[in-house]
Computed example of a mutant assay.
Amino acid sequence: MTMLDAGFRGQDAGGPAPTIIGTSLEPRANVVLRSAEFRRGREESWRELDDLVQRVEKRGIRSVSADELQKMPLLYRSALSSLSVARSIALDRNLLRYLEGLTLRAYLVVYGPRTSLFAGLGQFFTRGFPAAVRKVGWHILISFAALVIGIVAGYLIVASDEEWFNAIVPDDLSDGRGPTVTAEELRRTELFAPWPGFKDAFIVFANYLFRHNSIVAILSFGLGFMAGVPTLLLMVYQGLILGAFIAIHAKRGVFVDFIGWLSIHGVTELGAFVLCGAAGLLVAEKILFPGRYTRLESLAIHGKQAAIIVGGSVAMLFIAGIIEGGFRQLVGVTSWRFAFAGVTAVLWFLYFMSGRKEEQHGLPT
């Protein structure tokens, strides 16, 4: 016995009659008759749709013919109409549950994605993410400019008075690096520290870096809802921290080694921060200047693009965490670190420029 058959058994066996809106005092026999008529006139199309959906669920979309594929949306809309009628006249609950389940399954088959999870991810990273980034060029420049302003300001402030370092850099980020640190300590414990091993490098430290950086990057995007001002301030503050570190290392004669140590992962990490800031500025722009749409409509249209940028940026931060947590200390020569950073920068540039020809020729990305 199917769920559809069970939906009416209680009525046929003398169970409680359903309440029909506006006719609660109508004779019981008339209620049962109405329910039976409702089922008899539509049951065949329900069963046909159920059979098609089951075949697709078990054997895939290729298990149905072209004619059946064209017929499926019509059967789905018919079942949806039946569900609407059934709810309005309060038919048996089992039947309502059956129709709700059937229409939900049919919706996923008719209108659901036609690609697998891995195919969808492949589409996202090969076309969606680079295309979304290319559309926010001015936002990227503004976000990058805010970061550079912070770096310059942080460097000048700490270079003039190193005591400002402790006021700018949080304790959990300074990790003992401050006005009292020596050049030898920086070389031994930071710039050329020995590799800590696979577990500490790739699992413990890389995981910490990824979580911390992801929170900051997503916050940069989320603050875009407040007209973008907090996003820019956060980008400036991130620059202040970096500028403070540059000043400490420069005054101890290890500026070049520090930039090499930073660049090996900084190309990817700072790039992700800038992109998240750009996504926040995109949201701010569409809220402040919605154009011919309402603010809510404009946010719905362009919010997807911003979310794609943030999703891809988080993936970049994962890569940066792996590089910073493990590979950075494996590359112990400053010149090699610069070379690694240069190759990384070229690869990211080529990645984000991929697909431009398809866009220029009007092909979908």
Rank of each mutant, 00 (worst) to 15 (best):
R9P: 05
A79E: 00
S84P: 03
F225P: 13
R292N: 09
D161E: 14
F273Y: 14
R177D: 00
L91P: 02
A36E: 08
V204N: 00
R55H: 09
G128W: 00
A244R: 02
A145M: 07
T126D: 08
P27Y: 02
M3C: 04
H265E: 05
R105I: 01
L232D: 05
P170I: 10
R105C: 00
D12H: 12
I322Y: 01
A341C: 03
G243N: 02
R337K: 11
A131K: 14
L147E: 06
R211I: 13
F255M: 14
Q123T: 12
S78A: 10
E100H: 09
I203D: 02
I215T: 12
I218T: 15
E162Y: 05
G271C: 07
T182S: 13
L147S: 08
S298H: 00
G112D: 09
Y76F: 12
E285V: 07
V158Q: 09
T268M: 04
S78I: 02
D5P: 00
V158G: 13
V254Q: 13
E48F: 08
W164C: 05
A86D: 05
I218E: 04
G326R: 00
G120M: 07
A272Y: 10
S214R: 03
L330Q: 09
A79T: 01
R187A: 08
G342I: 03
F221R: 12
E297V: 15
T294V: 08
R9Y: 07
V32H: 01
W261L: 07
G277P: 04
G228N: 04
V229W: 15
V283R: 10
A159W: 06
D5C: 05
I301M: 10
V216P: 03
A17G: 10
G312L: 08
A247Q: 03
I259L: 14
V53M: 08
V85W: 04
D67R: 12
P364F: 07
E269F: 00
G303R: 12
Y293I: 06
A66I: 12
D161M: 13
A320K: 06
L242F: 08
G228M: 01
G15T: 14
T182A: 05
I21D: 01
A193I: 02
T19P: 02
E37C: 12
I323T: 02
Y98N: 06
R28T: 15
R47K: 13
V181E: 01
K251A: 10
F202R: 00
R127Q: 06
P170C: 12
A278W: 03
G150W: 01
R114G: 13
V158D: 11
L33I: 03
A132F: 03
L91F: 06
A145D: 02
V109P: 01
A17F: 06
F192N: 13
P27L: 07
K251L: 14
F202C: 04
V310F: 02
T334Y: 00
P196I: 03
V274T: 11
T126L: 14
A193V: 05
R34E: 03
L121D: 13
T115F: 09
L262H: 09
M1R: 05
T268R: 08
V274M: 03
F205R: 02
